[in-house]
Nucleic acid binder design. Structure first.
Lengths: 361, 361
DNA sequence: AATGTGTGGTGAAACGTTTAATCAATTTTT
DNA sequence: AAAAATTGATTAAACGTTTCACCACACATT
């Protein structure tokens, strides 16, 4: 509220209404107001409406800090994206889950659902070396972690806080946690089998780090399984690790171009990579799918529209977000606090223009 | 902590350490511990180190709720994305700022900076009709709003909470707020002038809603200004409003294809639109830039790599995020609480393959 | 009439900090 | 040597809720 007194302007923060003020105005005790606000049902109809009226008139809101202090429940959850970039396993910025466009959809969808359950959502990119003390400090009710790596102490750090937690897109040896993944192995399998079915035999597999990223590793297993099933020998040099960026895809294509007679198909673990590869090959005069077939992963929004459109493995991020959010609320409210659950969503192959039968001379 | 007693398992939440426990262990008063934790400098060297040691040993964290209750400062800010989808101005999901991939970069960059200043960041997609009571309830220290529209009561609602707020990508008639925008008019001007410079005269302008979105409206002004400067008559039917999605771009191209002799260039307000248009024209056998030149906007990560790569207007989202975050911290800490500031970042035209001289028969 | 059962409501403690007021001891100033 | 200032620490109130124990009253049950 702004007051102007004798030429001086004063900015006077009106004291915030408290439950006591409301109580006084309504002629009841603070406890009763509290009961009204929390709909405990222990208040008579008439008193409820009288209190409600004043609450609305005065535009009163409860103070979340006071509530949390008393109840030890914050109605606050966090979505955590671990940042491994400074750790032993060198990762580059773009590798971050969060740089992956589709995670936005995930984050905002998750937030939407949790919001309906009465939670506010803190979003945080956290270095894997940082302490996670805000979990305790803020009395977080739960945590969702996206893309944690196996083996780092980060996972156990999160778990050690003894707060309900759901891991998403994380492969962890510790089976004692709740997990929502895509069946990445199946994804890798489907895309590879698709190329094999078209008649390809010499198929590269291009992904990010295999060792630390379970997602990539699983997809590579799917690739290998498909090859084995088709009696195709697995050629270690055909498995290539790189940064998962459009730019790296392009650069890699240039490096691969001169030996393009050694392979006819490429399975990748990201549409971004596929787009970069297609561009790179284009710059080298190699046509996709004429000379090389390429399969992406994720089905990001532009994949259906670029030229050639990309054959890819579709993930339903909305569903994934829904599952994660709902599982977390169950863990939080669940009477049986041990409700560990693991869920593998099924990916789906979508055939478009970037794959075709191998070129025969 | 997990106890197993006589076959029964008990999950015993160890009582959380409080400042009093630490005080007792260190043989000092709670007030002293508080002073140590907050580095007020009013404690002797020796006491500090004794307390610190115990704090570390016991792994003690302050309770944020208690602090906030007392201080009325939460060290919490919110990034708000207004959702207009159910309001009068019908918008479709994809129009949401948040569905725009580059906003992820913005959000995570902003979070990173605010985090360094000691804030946690709540992320929320909010219906423009919803109350914003969490701002008061949680004692938020500040708010960043992305993509607010002129005229809706949403803006004044936010402002009415009397909390430091920075609007981003919002055009608001109320000049009394802090604002970080891109110079959208300049962006529209640059892209249009580029086409004019190549010799185009018949140039379409394709964007989302003009009326409610200041961003789009400003870009259209830039488009018109460029045309005027070149003495080209503005043809109202050349200004087309549509949903800003790849799919809509494609559909629109199909509708425009049969009259492709009426125009030779297209200015758009989003790379997503440009990508869709290129695809649509491709499906109709119209080549870009052979028969039509197209300019995008934003310079999303794939724009440089698709075929043809897209001539577009580049925005520096990292810079934008930095400006917004830092301005907000200034508003929060600033001694002179009235430090309204408005900032227009300069966009940059990036010429790539999707534009060329108009086809001459 | 005595006892039990609900119903609607109140009082006051407790949650874990911060901070203003105060104090004791020491050092500096006069 | 007395007064003043500085340093380091303490005490206790305050922040705004929730919730347990309690109460008064009406009503139903023996």
């Amino acid at each position: 509220m702004l007051f102007i007194i004798g030429g001086e302007t004063f900015f006077i923060m009106e004291r915030k209404m408290t439950i006591k003020d409301i109580a006084q105005l309504a002629g009841v005790s603070p406890a009763t107001v509290s009961n009204v606000m929390n709909k405990t049902g222990r208040v008579s109809k008439e008193t409820v409406s009288r209190v409600i009226e004043i609450v609305n008139e005065k535009n009163f809101n409860l103070n979340a800090s006071a509530r949390t202090l008393r109840q030890k429940v914050s109605r606050l959850i966090a979505i955590l994206v671990p940042d491994y970039s400074e750790s032993e396993n060198t990762y580059h910025g773009q590798e971050l889950g969060i740089a992956n466009p589709f995670y936005l959809e995930f984050v905002s969808k998750t937030e939407e659902i949790l919001s309906k359950h009465g939670f506010e959502t803190i979003f945080k990119v956290v270095s894997v070396k940082s302490d996670l003390k805000f979990i305790k400090e803020r009395n977080l009710d739960g945590v969702i972690v996206i893309g944690a790596h196996e083996g780092s102490e980060f996972t156990s750090k999160v778990v050690s806080y003894n707060v309900p937690v759901v891991f998403v897109d994380s492969y962890l040896s510790n089976g004692e946690v709740s997990l929502i993944n895509t069946d990445d192995q199946l994804g890798g399998y489907l895309s590879t089998r698709h190329l094999l079915g078209l008649g390809h035999q010499k198929i590269l597999f291009i992904s990010g780090e295999l060792q630390s990223s379970g997602v990539n590793y699983e997809r590579s297993l799917g690739y290998q399984r498909a090859l084995e099933e088709h009696g195709v020998k697995i050629e270690p040099s055909f498995i290539i690790q790189t940064d998962v960026t459009v730019e790296e895809g392009r650069a890699l294509a240039h490096r691969l171009a001169f030996k393009n007679n050694e392979f006819t198909g490429i399975v990748t673990t990201a549409d971004a990579l596929a787009i970069g590869l297609i561009r790179g090959f284009y710059e080298c005069g190699i046509s996709v799918p004429g000379q090389v077939s390429i399969v992406g992963f994720d089905d990001i929004s532009v994949s259906a529209f670029i030229i050639p459109s990309i054959t890819t493995v579709h993930q339903d991020f909305e569903l994934k977000a829904k599952r994660a959010a709902i599982l977390l609320t169950k863990l939080i409210h669940g009477s049986d606090s041990e409700k560990i659950q693991q869920d593998n969503l099924l990916p789906k192959l979508i055939v478009r223009e970037s794959t075709a039968e191998p070129f025969s001379k």
